[in-house]
């Protein structure tokens, strides 16, 4: 699993594009989702996410995915569930303080950010505290609804 995580971070640039492509495609389906009902679709989408994102990035299904900011390194694999960067305890060899056998999630996130080739590092965006009520729900569907909500506000 760790090998797959590393692969995803090294390929962060096009994987992020793919990820956003999926979200864009899903956003187009919004009218359909609305007719069927987001609530009813959530379980199926969560299952798809668990398989795909689970395989690629060890996604922990927090329901508020930020891997676009973290160079495709899922921050929920951090034993301290830090969502805003590495703690001070990272070992000299870049391994986790708590799990010495694991690469630090945030050392990988920094590598991934450098792969992205973007003008500014998205890792610098200050993420809000995790909403515990959303754990175990579909992050993709939430993103679609958020985008539509923003559209409606404009």
């Amino acid at each position: 699993m760790h090998r797959m995580r590393r692969w995803s971070v090294r390929n962060a640039r096009w994987l992020k594009k793919l990820y956003h492509g999926i979200e864009n495609a899903l956003t187009l389906c919004h009218p359909l989702f609305e007719r069927v009902g987001y609530q009813r679709l959530d379980k199926s989408f969560l299952a798809i996410e668990k398989v795909t994102k689970g395989l690629l990035i060890d996604s922990q299904s927090c329901g508020q995915c930020i891997v676009g900011f973290t160079g495709l390194s899922c921050p929920m694999n951090c034993p301290k569930t830090m969502r805003n960067g590495p703690c001070g305890g990272v070992r000299a060899d870049g391994k986790c303080e708590v799990k010495p056998e694991m690469d630090c999630v945030w050392v990988m996130a920094w590598e991934g950010n450098q792969q992205l080739g973007e003008k500014e590092y998205p890792i610098q965006f200050v993420q809000p505290a995790l909403n515990n009520q959303l754990i175990g729900t579909s992050a993709w569907l939430r993103e679609v609804r958020n985008r539509k909500a923003v559209d409606n506000e404009i």
């Binding site: 805003n84 960067g85 590495p86 001070g88 305890g89 990272v90 070992r91 000299a92 060899d93 870049g94 630090c104 945030w106 050392v107 920094w110 590598e111 590092y121 890792i123 610098q124 200050v126």
Partner: peptide, 14 residues
């Protein structure tokens, strides 16, 4: 003094 050393200044900026 902790890895990734090149990210540490940015971390402080954040």
């Amino acid at each position: 003094f902790g890895p990734p050393l090149d990210y540490r200044p940015l971390r402080l900026a954040k």
